[in-house]
Design a protein around this nucleic acid. Structure first.
Length: 319
DNA sequence: TCATCTTGACCGTAGAC
DNA sequence: GTCTACGGTCAAGATGA
Protein backbone atom coordinates (compact mmCIF):
# COMPACT_ATOMS: atom_id res chain seq x y z
CA UNK A 1 0.00 0.00 0.00
CA UNK A 2 1.47 3.29 -0.99
CA UNK A 3 0.59 5.80 1.65
CA UNK A 4 2.93 8.43 0.41
CA UNK A 5 1.01 8.94 -2.78
CA UNK A 6 -2.39 9.06 -1.23
CA UNK A 7 -1.93 11.45 1.61
CA UNK A 8 0.24 14.30 2.66
CA UNK A 9 3.30 13.15 4.44
CA UNK A 10 3.47 15.09 7.65
CA UNK A 11 6.42 13.22 9.02
CA UNK A 12 8.72 15.29 11.12
CA UNK A 13 12.39 15.58 10.63
CA UNK A 14 13.35 15.81 14.26
CA UNK A 15 16.98 16.00 13.57
CA UNK A 16 18.83 15.77 16.84
CA UNK A 17 22.23 16.19 15.33
CA UNK A 18 22.31 19.44 13.43
CA UNK A 19 26.08 19.28 13.21
CA UNK A 20 26.07 15.96 11.44
CA UNK A 21 23.68 16.73 8.75
CA UNK A 22 25.75 14.83 6.25
CA UNK A 23 24.53 11.63 7.82
CA UNK A 24 21.10 12.12 6.51
CA UNK A 25 20.32 11.39 2.94
CA UNK A 26 17.20 13.43 2.91
CA UNK A 27 17.68 16.76 1.21
CA UNK A 28 17.66 19.80 3.39
CA UNK A 29 14.38 21.57 3.67
CA UNK A 30 14.21 24.92 1.97
CA UNK A 31 15.83 27.77 3.86
CA UNK A 32 13.63 29.30 6.49
CA UNK A 33 13.45 32.69 4.81
CA UNK A 34 12.40 31.16 1.55
CA UNK A 35 9.86 29.09 3.36
CA UNK A 36 8.64 32.08 5.23
CA UNK A 37 8.21 34.12 2.08
CA UNK A 38 6.42 31.22 0.45
CA UNK A 39 4.17 31.01 3.40
CA UNK A 40 3.49 34.74 3.33
CA UNK A 41 2.80 34.55 -0.38
CA UNK A 42 0.40 31.80 0.28
CA UNK A 43 -1.32 33.90 2.90
CA UNK A 44 -1.55 36.85 0.54
CA UNK A 45 -3.07 34.69 -2.11
CA UNK A 46 -5.66 33.52 0.28
CA UNK A 47 -6.45 37.08 1.12
CA UNK A 48 -6.80 36.19 4.75
CA UNK A 49 -4.18 38.40 6.30
CA UNK A 50 -5.81 38.29 9.66
CA UNK A 51 -5.36 34.49 9.62
CA UNK A 52 -1.70 34.44 8.65
CA UNK A 53 -0.64 37.36 10.80
CA UNK A 54 -0.38 35.42 14.04
CA UNK A 55 1.22 32.53 12.21
CA UNK A 56 3.93 34.72 10.75
CA UNK A 57 4.46 36.21 14.14
CA UNK A 58 4.78 32.74 15.61
CA UNK A 59 7.14 31.81 12.83
CA UNK A 60 9.36 34.74 13.63
CA UNK A 61 9.34 33.85 17.28
CA UNK A 62 10.26 30.25 16.55
CA UNK A 63 12.94 31.37 14.16
CA UNK A 64 14.48 33.60 16.83
CA UNK A 65 14.41 30.76 19.33
CA UNK A 66 15.98 28.47 16.80
CA UNK A 67 18.79 30.93 16.30
CA UNK A 68 19.33 31.14 20.02
CA UNK A 69 19.44 27.36 20.31
CA UNK A 70 21.91 27.12 17.48
CA UNK A 71 24.18 29.47 19.35
CA UNK A 72 23.79 27.39 22.50
CA UNK A 73 24.63 24.24 20.58
CA UNK A 74 27.69 25.86 19.08
CA UNK A 75 28.86 26.81 22.53
CA UNK A 76 28.28 23.27 23.75
CA UNK A 77 30.34 21.96 20.86
CA UNK A 78 33.20 24.26 21.75
CA UNK A 79 33.06 23.22 25.38
CA UNK A 80 32.97 19.61 24.38
CA UNK A 81 35.98 19.93 22.15
CA UNK A 82 38.01 21.71 24.78
CA UNK A 83 37.09 19.04 27.34
CA UNK A 84 38.02 16.33 24.92
CA UNK A 85 41.39 17.93 24.31
CA UNK A 86 41.96 18.18 28.03
CA UNK A 87 41.12 14.52 28.45
CA UNK A 88 43.47 13.51 25.65
CA UNK A 89 46.19 15.57 27.21
CA UNK A 90 45.58 13.99 30.57
CA UNK A 91 45.60 10.48 29.11
CA UNK A 92 48.89 11.19 27.43
CA UNK A 93 50.41 12.38 30.67
CA UNK A 94 49.06 9.45 32.70
CA UNK A 95 49.13 6.39 30.49
CA UNK A 96 49.53 4.09 33.51
CA UNK A 97 46.15 5.08 34.85
CA UNK A 98 44.40 3.67 31.86
CA UNK A 99 44.16 0.26 33.47
CA UNK A 100 42.08 0.53 36.55
CA UNK A 101 40.33 -2.79 36.41
CA UNK A 102 40.53 -4.54 39.76
CA UNK A 103 40.38 -7.95 38.21
CA UNK A 104 42.87 -9.36 35.81
CA UNK A 105 40.39 -11.85 34.57
CA UNK A 106 38.22 -11.01 31.66
CA UNK A 107 40.52 -8.16 30.90
CA UNK A 108 38.78 -7.72 27.63
CA UNK A 109 35.45 -6.85 29.12
CA UNK A 110 36.89 -4.51 31.69
CA UNK A 111 39.01 -2.65 29.23
CA UNK A 112 36.12 -2.72 26.93
CA UNK A 113 34.07 -0.81 29.39
CA UNK A 114 36.82 1.56 30.23
CA UNK A 115 37.32 2.48 26.67
CA UNK A 116 33.84 2.25 25.36
CA UNK A 117 31.62 3.36 28.13
CA UNK A 118 32.29 6.96 27.41
CA UNK A 119 29.00 8.50 28.10
CA UNK A 120 29.44 12.13 28.65
CA UNK A 121 27.33 14.43 30.69
CA UNK A 122 25.00 14.82 27.80
CA UNK A 123 24.85 11.13 27.09
CA UNK A 124 27.38 11.10 24.33
CA UNK A 125 28.62 7.84 23.03
CA UNK A 126 32.11 7.69 21.74
CA UNK A 127 32.77 4.05 21.37
CA UNK A 128 35.02 2.85 18.67
CA UNK A 129 34.70 -0.35 16.79
CA UNK A 130 38.41 -0.98 17.00
CA UNK A 131 38.27 -1.13 20.75
CA UNK A 132 35.49 -3.62 20.63
CA UNK A 133 37.10 -5.67 17.96
CA UNK A 134 40.40 -5.78 19.73
CA UNK A 135 38.62 -7.59 22.49
CA UNK A 136 37.29 -10.21 20.17
CA UNK A 137 38.83 -13.61 20.31
CA UNK A 138 41.96 -13.61 18.24
CA UNK A 139 41.27 -17.09 16.99
CA UNK A 140 38.31 -15.76 15.10
CA UNK A 141 40.30 -14.63 12.15
CA UNK A 142 37.28 -13.64 10.22
CA UNK A 143 38.10 -12.31 6.82
CA UNK A 144 35.32 -9.79 7.14
CA UNK A 145 35.37 -7.85 10.34
CA UNK A 146 31.94 -7.44 11.77
CA UNK A 147 30.85 -3.88 12.16
CA UNK A 148 30.36 -3.00 15.80
CA UNK A 149 28.94 0.19 17.11
CA UNK A 150 27.21 1.51 20.13
CA UNK A 151 24.18 3.61 20.72
CA UNK A 152 23.14 5.35 23.89
CA UNK A 153 19.50 5.91 24.61
CA UNK A 154 18.25 7.82 27.57
CA UNK A 155 15.23 6.31 29.26
CA UNK A 156 13.37 6.60 32.50
CA UNK A 157 15.65 5.35 35.26
CA UNK A 158 12.80 3.33 36.69
CA UNK A 159 12.04 1.77 33.36
CA UNK A 160 13.47 -1.73 33.66
CA UNK A 161 12.80 -2.79 30.11
CA UNK A 162 15.90 -3.16 27.97
CA UNK A 163 14.23 -2.07 24.80
CA UNK A 164 15.82 0.25 22.30
CA UNK A 165 13.58 1.22 19.46
CA UNK A 166 15.66 1.62 16.36
CA UNK A 167 13.23 0.68 13.66
CA UNK A 168 14.29 -2.93 13.30
CA UNK A 169 12.64 -6.06 14.60
CA UNK A 170 14.57 -7.80 17.34
CA UNK A 171 14.09 -11.12 19.03
CA UNK A 172 15.47 -11.48 22.52
CA UNK A 173 17.37 -14.72 22.96
CA UNK A 174 19.13 -14.26 26.25
CA UNK A 175 19.80 -12.18 29.27
CA UNK A 176 22.79 -12.20 31.59
CA UNK A 177 24.04 -10.31 34.56
CA UNK A 178 27.61 -9.38 33.87
CA UNK A 179 30.30 -9.02 36.43
CA UNK A 180 31.03 -5.35 36.02
CA UNK A 181 27.47 -4.14 35.80
CA UNK A 182 24.63 -5.03 38.17
CA UNK A 183 22.14 -4.37 35.44
CA UNK A 184 21.32 -7.37 33.26
CA UNK A 185 22.46 -7.45 29.67
CA UNK A 186 19.91 -8.50 27.09
CA UNK A 187 20.85 -10.21 23.85
CA UNK A 188 18.83 -9.63 20.71
CA UNK A 189 18.94 -10.97 17.18
CA UNK A 190 17.46 -9.25 14.19
CA UNK A 191 14.27 -11.12 13.45
CA UNK A 192 13.13 -9.17 10.41
CA UNK A 193 15.12 -11.39 8.07
CA UNK A 194 15.99 -14.92 9.15
CA UNK A 195 19.42 -14.68 7.59
CA UNK A 196 20.26 -11.30 9.05
CA UNK A 197 23.41 -11.71 11.15
CA UNK A 198 22.99 -8.57 13.21
CA UNK A 199 23.00 -8.93 16.96
CA UNK A 200 22.37 -6.39 19.61
CA UNK A 201 23.30 -6.24 23.27
CA UNK A 202 21.47 -3.84 25.52
CA UNK A 203 22.58 -2.96 29.00
CA UNK A 204 22.15 -0.04 31.31
CA UNK A 205 25.12 2.16 31.83
CA UNK A 206 26.95 1.64 35.09
CA UNK A 207 27.31 5.36 35.57
CA UNK A 208 23.82 6.38 34.67
CA UNK A 209 21.00 3.90 35.04
CA UNK A 210 18.79 6.02 32.85
CA UNK A 211 21.03 5.39 29.85
CA UNK A 212 20.68 2.25 27.82
CA UNK A 213 23.78 1.24 25.93
CA UNK A 214 23.00 -0.80 22.87
CA UNK A 215 25.88 -2.54 21.15
CA UNK A 216 25.21 -3.62 17.58
CA UNK A 217 27.27 -6.25 15.82
CA UNK A 218 27.16 -6.86 12.12
CA UNK A 219 25.31 -5.22 9.34
CA UNK A 220 21.73 -5.75 8.25
CA UNK A 221 21.44 -7.57 4.96
CA UNK A 222 17.99 -6.18 4.36
CA UNK A 223 16.44 -2.75 4.18
CA UNK A 224 15.03 -1.18 7.28
CA UNK A 225 11.51 -2.42 7.83
CA UNK A 226 8.74 0.02 7.18
CA UNK A 227 7.16 1.58 10.26
CA UNK A 228 4.18 -0.67 9.78
CA UNK A 229 6.33 -3.77 9.74
CA UNK A 230 8.55 -2.64 12.54
CA UNK A 231 5.58 -2.03 14.78
CA UNK A 232 3.66 -5.10 13.76
CA UNK A 233 4.78 -7.37 16.54
CA UNK A 234 4.72 -6.83 20.23
CA UNK A 235 7.52 -4.91 21.76
CA UNK A 236 8.17 -2.99 18.64
CA UNK A 237 7.75 0.60 19.58
CA UNK A 238 7.97 3.59 17.38
CA UNK A 239 10.24 3.75 14.43
CA UNK A 240 12.61 6.48 13.59
CA UNK A 241 14.45 6.45 10.36
CA UNK A 242 17.35 8.38 11.75
CA UNK A 243 20.52 6.50 12.42
CA UNK A 244 21.48 5.80 15.98
CA UNK A 245 24.13 7.98 17.51
CA UNK A 246 26.76 5.64 16.35
CA UNK A 247 30.32 6.41 17.14
CA UNK A 248 31.36 4.75 13.94
CA UNK A 249 29.16 6.80 11.80
CA UNK A 250 29.84 10.09 13.47
CA UNK A 251 33.08 11.86 13.54
CA UNK A 252 34.45 12.69 16.92
CA UNK A 253 34.65 16.34 16.12
CA UNK A 254 31.45 17.20 17.85
CA UNK A 255 29.08 15.98 20.48
CA UNK A 256 26.30 13.60 19.71
CA UNK A 257 22.94 13.98 21.25
CA UNK A 258 21.46 10.94 22.85
CA UNK A 259 18.36 9.98 21.02
CA UNK A 260 15.35 9.02 22.98
CA UNK A 261 13.43 6.46 21.01
CA UNK A 262 11.26 5.63 23.95
CA UNK A 263 8.53 8.16 23.78
CA UNK A 264 5.25 6.67 24.86
CA UNK A 265 3.43 5.25 21.94
CA UNK A 266 -0.07 4.09 21.34
CA UNK A 267 -0.27 0.63 22.74
CA UNK A 268 2.54 -0.97 20.86
CA UNK A 269 4.70 -1.60 23.85
CA UNK A 270 2.70 -2.06 26.94
CA UNK A 271 5.65 -3.20 28.99
CA UNK A 272 7.79 -0.20 28.37
CA UNK A 273 5.00 2.28 28.16
CA UNK A 274 5.59 4.42 31.19
CA UNK A 275 4.37 7.82 32.14
CA UNK A 276 6.21 10.65 30.51
CA UNK A 277 9.55 11.00 32.13
CA UNK A 278 10.37 14.03 34.15
CA UNK A 279 12.74 16.19 32.23
CA UNK A 280 14.31 19.37 33.29
CA UNK A 281 12.48 22.43 31.98
CA UNK A 282 15.47 23.27 29.82
CA UNK A 283 15.40 19.89 28.14
CA UNK A 284 11.68 20.12 27.61
CA UNK A 285 12.03 23.55 26.16
CA UNK A 286 14.78 22.33 23.92
CA UNK A 287 12.66 19.47 22.64
CA UNK A 288 9.65 21.67 22.12
CA UNK A 289 11.75 24.25 20.34
CA UNK A 290 13.30 21.63 18.18
CA UNK A 291 9.93 20.24 17.26
CA UNK A 292 8.69 23.71 16.48
CA UNK A 293 11.65 24.52 14.29
CA UNK A 294 11.37 21.16 12.56
CA UNK A 295 7.73 21.82 11.91
CA UNK A 296 8.40 25.17 10.37
CA UNK A 297 11.24 23.74 8.30
CA UNK A 298 9.22 20.88 6.96
CA UNK A 299 7.67 21.74 3.61
CA UNK A 300 5.27 18.86 4.01
CA UNK A 301 4.01 20.30 7.21
CA UNK A 302 3.48 23.72 5.66
CA UNK A 303 1.68 22.07 2.78
CA UNK A 304 -0.54 20.19 5.19
CA UNK A 305 -1.12 23.34 7.19
CA UNK A 306 -1.96 25.24 4.05
CA UNK A 307 -4.36 22.53 3.04
CA UNK A 308 -5.97 22.62 6.45
CA UNK A 309 -6.29 26.41 6.42
CA UNK A 310 -7.66 26.52 2.90
CA UNK A 311 -10.07 23.78 3.79
CA UNK A 312 -11.21 25.76 6.78
CA UNK A 313 -11.64 28.88 4.69
CA UNK A 314 -13.65 27.00 2.13
CA UNK A 315 -15.74 25.60 4.91
CA UNK A 316 -16.38 29.07 6.29
CA UNK A 317 -17.28 30.37 2.87
CA UNK A 318 -19.67 27.55 2.24
CA UNK A 319 -21.43 28.09 5.57
C1' DT B 1 -1.73 -21.43 17.27
C1' DC B 2 2.15 -18.85 16.84
C1' DA B 3 5.61 -15.60 18.08
C1' DT B 4 8.12 -13.98 21.69
C1' DC B 5 10.04 -13.89 26.35
C1' DT B 6 12.24 -15.93 30.46
C1' DT B 7 15.73 -18.33 32.54
C1' DG B 8 18.60 -22.19 33.80
C1' DA B 9 21.98 -24.99 31.53
C1' DC B 10 25.64 -25.55 28.62
C1' DC B 11 29.84 -24.33 25.95
C1' DG B 12 34.04 -21.96 24.70
C1' DT B 13 37.60 -18.87 26.05
C1' DA B 14 40.98 -16.53 28.89
C1' DG B 15 43.56 -15.99 32.98
C1' DA B 16 45.51 -18.06 37.23
C1' DC B 17 47.97 -21.63 39.21
C1' DG C 1 47.52 -28.98 31.74
C1' DT C 2 43.83 -28.12 34.88
C1' DC C 3 40.75 -25.21 37.29
C1' DT C 4 37.83 -21.35 37.56
C1' DA C 5 35.34 -17.29 36.19
C1' DC C 6 33.03 -15.25 32.76
C1' DG C 7 30.37 -14.01 28.49
C1' DG C 8 27.56 -15.76 25.00
C1' DT C 9 24.15 -18.94 23.25
C1' DC C 10 20.71 -22.59 23.40
C1' DA C 11 16.38 -24.44 24.31
C1' DA C 12 12.33 -25.84 27.05
C1' DG C 13 8.61 -23.97 29.25
C1' DA C 14 5.74 -19.86 30.00
C1' DT C 15 3.16 -16.10 28.31
C1' DG C 16 0.34 -13.18 25.53
C1' DA C 17 -2.09 -11.77 21.34
Amino acid sequence: MDYSSSCVDTSLDLNSKPYHRELYDAPLPPPKKELESKFIDFGMKLGAKQETGPLVEELNRVSAENKKLTEMLTMMCENYNSLRNQLAEYMNKNPAEKELSPSKKRKSESSNNNSNNIIGANGNSESSSTDEESCKKPREEEPIKTKVWKTCVRTEATDTSLIVKDGYQWRKYGQKVTRDNPSPRAYFKCSFAPSCPVKKKVQRSVDDQSILVATYEGEHNHPQPSPLEATSGQNRGMTLTSVPCSANAISSSGPNITLDFTKPKSGTDSKSAKPARTESPDVRKFLVDQMASSLTKDPNFTAALAAAISGRIYQQKSN
